[in-house]
């Protein structure tokens, strides 16, 4: 037991406990904040595996961008906290899903040689540059899957915008071009006394 092992158990127990309470909690905002905690601790796990690039990107992308949007939507919608929902149907589904997931994890961990399948030699070098290596393999060996992922994300963005573009415009919007072109003549009309 060295200090890294203690840290590992601390971090994993935080992850497990907060994922459990994430499912149980009624308050959606609290649940989203627990998800932030889980992501943060997962980033620490990755840091301990010397994957500093992935850890920082996890914090940057998931915590810094995706979950902010989650929280944003949850807070704007103001979902009422439900107290007594009938839980029998939920129970059935959740128990089934957890049994399946447990079985899968069990098979992966105990029937598959986990340690042997992890390559070890690469990151032992002292001057190993995580970011560089990931960039190299992303843009050489995995360039097609990388580009396809980017394309799918782009399609998703365009689809989201397209859905929102349909229908009439409900909000009043300022046209900045028109605003700039306004001058004194178009706004002010001087009426002399004798005209009245």
């Amino acid at each position: 037991m060295d200090i890294i092992t203690i840290l590992f158990y601390l971090v994993t127990s935080v992850i497990i406990l907060s994922s459990m309470s994430l499912v149980i909690l009624n308050n959606t905002v609290h649940a989203a904040l627990l998800l932030v905690l889980i992501f943060f601790n997962s980033a620490i796990l990755w840091l301990m595996l010397k994957a500093e690039f992935l850890a920082i990107v996890l914090v940057l992308v998931y915590v810094g961008a995706v979950l902010v949007l989650f929280l944003f939507v949850i807070m704007l919608l103001d979902i009422p906290i439900k107290k007594n929902i009938s839980q029998k149907l939920y129970l059935l589904f959740s128990v089934t899903i957890s049994i399946i997931m447990f079985a899968e994890l069990y098979m992966v961990i105990f029937y598959h040689d986990f340690v042997a399948s992890v390559p070890t030699s690469a990151n032992s070098a002292l001057e190993f540059n995580n970011t560089y290596e990931i960039g190299l393999s992303l843009f050489t060996n995995y360039i097609f899957s990388f580009e396809i992922t980017a394309f799918i994300l782009l399609v998703a963005i365009i689809a989201a915008i397209a859905i929102n573009m349909t229908g009439r415009q409900r909000s009043l919007r300022q046209d900045p071009g028109k605003q700039i072109l306004e001058n004194k003549k178009s706004r002010l009309k001087i009426i002399k006394d004798e005209d009245l």
Partner: peptide
């Protein structure tokens, strides 16, 4: 002196938003 220093700074500045959102809510 970490290799991904700039990314670390981007990550940290993007976390500042949580203080604001949580305070507001």
């Amino acid at each position: 002196n970490i290799n991904a220093g700039l990314l670390y700074i981007l990550a940290m500045t993007s976390l500042g938003i949580y203080g604001i959102i949580i305070a507001g809510w």
